[in-house]
Design a protein around this nucleic acid. Sequence first.
DNA 1: GTTCATTGCGTCGAACTGACACAATGATAC
DNA 2: GTATCATTGTGTCAGTTCGACGCAATGAAC
Lengths: 257, 257
Amino acid sequence: MTPQKTFRETIAEGEALFQPSVSLDCVIFGFHENELKVLLVKAKASEHWALPGGFVFKEEDLDDAAIRVLKERTGLNDIFLQQFHVFGSAKRSDWNVHRTNFKKDGIEIGPDHWLLKRFITVGYYALVEFAHVKPTLDTSSDACTWWDLNDIQELFMDHKQILDSALDTLRLQLNHLPIGYNLLPQKFTMPELQKLYETILNKSLDRRNFQRRMTGFGILKRLKETRKGGAHRAPFLYSFDMRKYRKALKQGLYGGW
Amino acid sequence: MTPQKTFRETIAEGEALFQPSVSLDCVIFGFHENELKVLLVKAKASEHWALPGGFVFKEEDLDDAAIRVLKERTGLNDIFLQQFHVFGSAKRSDWNVHRTNFKKDGIEIGPDHWLLKRFITVGYYALVEFAHVKPTLDTSSDACTWWDLNDIQELFMDHKQILDSALDTLRLQLNHLPIGYNLLPQKFTMPELQKLYETILNKSLDRRNFQRRMTGFGILKRLKETRKGGAHRAPFLYSFDMRKYRKALKQGLYGGW
DNA sequence: GTTCATTGCGTCGAACTGACACAATGATAC
DNA sequence: GTATCATTGTGTCAGTTCGACGCAATGAAC
């Protein structure tokens, strides 16, 4: 069973397999070399790169479908994954434009084909540890790789808008959720954590105030080790105190009212 | 065209009219007599009360469908309305249980009828001014009325869960959005605004600190008038400074980082 | 006019925030 | 081996905010 064949199969049998009208797209964030990255796929159906997405099997929970898509693209289970918005504009998909692209691959689909119908898509965003991800092709894609957030100009259909919306959500969540755990390796230094925050917020923070604030949350454990090998003074390594981390995940970092 | 007839028509023609698989439900919050209220409908299809909901026309934007449902139930346009979560469990709907209820109303539907299929529903929550709402029946309901939040025990399908989720979202939004504008009349007193916050958060706040904080946001205008007629000192009336209010809606009340 | 719950305004110490100083560290250059 | 120097750990300090509470003014009820 070649990939091409399963792709054809999916296209042929999709209507029977999937919940109609509904799709999902994942904005998968990673952090590498002090830059925020997004995992994109090059869809066969288009010239453009796209967010990894998929459809929901008829007996499958929506959230499980998102977990499945993530697992298929990254090889990862047990990941921070959250829906953030539904994109339901009537005109958001224009698959008909892409019929010709299918043709180029020798795949003919009729004008009433299920793939050409209107889809309402649920946006999920995921935070993953860059080094653990093995970007994996699926049968409907030519490529699957990390993109630097700053290099992304135009994407398939409304996927750029979905991406921007996910970034907004991430920036908002940064205020009341302990984000670092999902994007950094288990052990990390304070400057690394700060770079992550600076990158997401796109603004520089005071080193000393940042440290005071983060330690103040009480969700970090300072280890005895330091990160040697840098050109200067070796910073301490930290890891998350999982008990307090989970508590903060539920309650939020700020009490609010 | 009697209501009963359009109900039958909708049931008969729905498959051709609506986007399959997708529905939406609205959690409509109001504030009255110092209590948080939710607008519910008594569905013909069930013994239970339900959230006002609907389906998406084939050429209609998802958000427009929510606006339409809200307009139909409340008579209101131009309302604070926001999607907050998608409920996509495969087992969330068990319409088959309710086939018998249709039968009681003399409506027979087959086992493959579109209404019995699986739906993924998008949850919207709305904040409305209680006094402006005219609860309006639709053709699929026996009743439509306000319920006190505390009196709601069990609802249709998973609607109680949807309601609880909306309330969580509202409580979270309270931290960074100027909420009062949508739930209170144009002119209101500080104690009234405080009661609203206390009701939503289910906890009492210090009168003086509340006032300092709210005025500190700079989105309120104190009017020259006072609310006479109360048994004691007449409190000043306030209204929202719309320019600063809209700015706060976009930027959030707290800077965060 | 007295009563009294409620409202407007203010105070005070504790906690937090932003800006910055200074010493310690550790690889690199010489 | 030692000087260099960017980077890190820790601390200070003034300005601001926050939670708790005091007190006088108000206005309907008696």
